[in-house]
Amino acid sequence: MSSPCDPQHAPAGDVGVALMMIDSQLKSVYDGKSKADPGQQALIKQLTASLGPKGVDDVLDGACTLIFMFMQWLRMAYEDHDKDVIAHVVPNLVTSMRMMPKSVRPEAIPTMAGMVVAAGTGLSPSLWRKQYGYWTKDEMTPLEATAFLLAEHINRLTDDPDFATRMITEALSSSDED
């Protein structure tokens, strides 16, 4: 029986812009900066300001697609070691978010954890979230933080600071070729 949250029913969204935002944050953290490059920040701000409502929805869907892809990769990696992805990723994610009270309000953490569990069990994070209503303004930064934390988790596991970004870029490139 197919779920209404099956990824085949979900829009992929603008994965490129979502990935650019996450990659910018990763690079600033790895470079030891407290903030992303001002030029990159200005470019992202200009891009997101020009999107309009449909474009913003596409970036939200793109971030959810990233979360889904990251969780699928993590699921396979943990299963290769006979470990459960939910048991290893969700507690780490929740703990990290709780240490970010200025960026992630406590009431957003259960939603982000639920979305990661949905993705880890093969459901579309976007469709899972939308069954509870439209995104709130207070969920935008936690959504970005969730994608960032998952990408950073992958990069730590692989000991490669560009692995998560490269994995998605290669997947996008191969889908363009098909």
Rank of each mutant, 00 (worst) to 15 (best):
residue 133 G to V: 06
residue 133 G to I: 04
residue 133 G to H: 01
residue 133 G to A: 06
residue 133 G to Q: 05
residue 134 Y to Q: 13
residue 134 Y to H: 15
residue 134 Y to I: 14
residue 134 Y to W: 04
residue 135 W to R: 08
residue 135 W to G: 02
residue 135 W to S: 08
residue 137 K to G: 03
residue 137 K to N: 02
residue 137 K to L: 06
residue 137 K to E: 06
residue 137 K to H: 05
residue 138 D to P: 05
residue 138 D to N: 07
residue 140 M to R: 05
residue 140 M to N: 02
residue 140 M to V: 13
residue 140 M to L: 12
residue 140 M to C: 01
residue 141 T to R: 04
residue 141 T to H: 02
residue 141 T to Q: 03
residue 141 T to K: 05
residue 141 T to N: 01
residue 141 T to P: 02
residue 142 P to V: 03
residue 142 P to I: 05
residue 142 P to L: 06
residue 142 P to N: 02
residue 143 L to Y: 04
residue 144 E to V: 13
residue 144 E to K: 09
residue 144 E to G: 09
residue 144 E to S: 11
residue 145 A to S: 05
residue 145 A to R: 09
residue 145 A to V: 12
residue 145 A to D: 01
residue 146 T to N: 00
residue 146 T to A: 10
residue 146 T to P: 05
residue 146 T to D: 00
residue 146 T to I: 04
residue 147 A to H: 07
residue 148 F to S: 01
residue 148 F to Y: 15
residue 149 L to G: 00
residue 149 L to R: 09
residue 149 L to D: 00
residue 149 L to K: 09
residue 149 L to T: 01
residue 150 L to F: 10
residue 150 L to Y: 11
residue 151 A to F: 14
residue 151 A to T: 04
residue 151 A to H: 13
residue 151 A to G: 05
residue 151 A to N: 03
residue 151 A to I: 07
residue 151 A to E: 04
residue 151 A to R: 13
residue 152 E to K: 14
residue 152 E to V: 08
residue 153 H to E: 11
residue 154 I to L: 11
residue 154 I to F: 06
residue 155 N to K: 00
residue 155 N to A: 07
residue 155 N to W: 03
residue 156 R to A: 11
residue 156 R to L: 07
residue 156 R to P: 01
residue 157 L to T: 07
residue 157 L to D: 01
residue 157 L to I: 09
residue 157 L to F: 13
residue 158 T to R: 15
residue 158 T to I: 14
residue 158 T to S: 05
residue 158 T to Y: 08
residue 158 T to C: 13
residue 159 D to A: 14
residue 159 D to W: 10
residue 159 D to S: 10
residue 159 D to E: 07
residue 159 D to N: 15
residue 159 D to P: 06
residue 160 D to M: 13
residue 160 D to S: 15
residue 160 D to F: 11
residue 160 D to E: 08
residue 160 D to W: 10
residue 161 P to L: 02
residue 161 P to W: 03
residue 161 P to S: 06
residue 162 D to F: 10
residue 162 D to S: 12
residue 162 D to P: 00
residue 163 F to T: 00
residue 163 F to I: 10
residue 163 F to P: 02
residue 163 F to C: 03
residue 164 A to Q: 02
residue 164 A to K: 05
residue 164 A to D: 00
residue 165 T to A: 14
residue 165 T to S: 14
residue 165 T to R: 12
residue 166 R to V: 09
residue 166 R to L: 04
residue 167 M to F: 15
residue 167 M to T: 09
residue 167 M to W: 13
residue 168 I to W: 00
residue 168 I to E: 01
residue 168 I to L: 04
residue 168 I to Q: 02
residue 169 T to M: 11
residue 169 T to A: 10
residue 170 E to W: 15
residue 170 E to N: 15
residue 170 E to C: 10
residue 170 E to D: 15
residue 170 E to A: 14
residue 170 E to F: 15
residue 171 A to L: 14
residue 171 A to N: 08
residue 171 A to M: 12
residue 171 A to I: 06
residue 171 A to F: 15
residue 171 A to E: 10
residue 171 A to S: 12
residue 172 L to C: 00
residue 172 L to F: 11
residue 172 L to V: 04
residue 172 L to K: 11
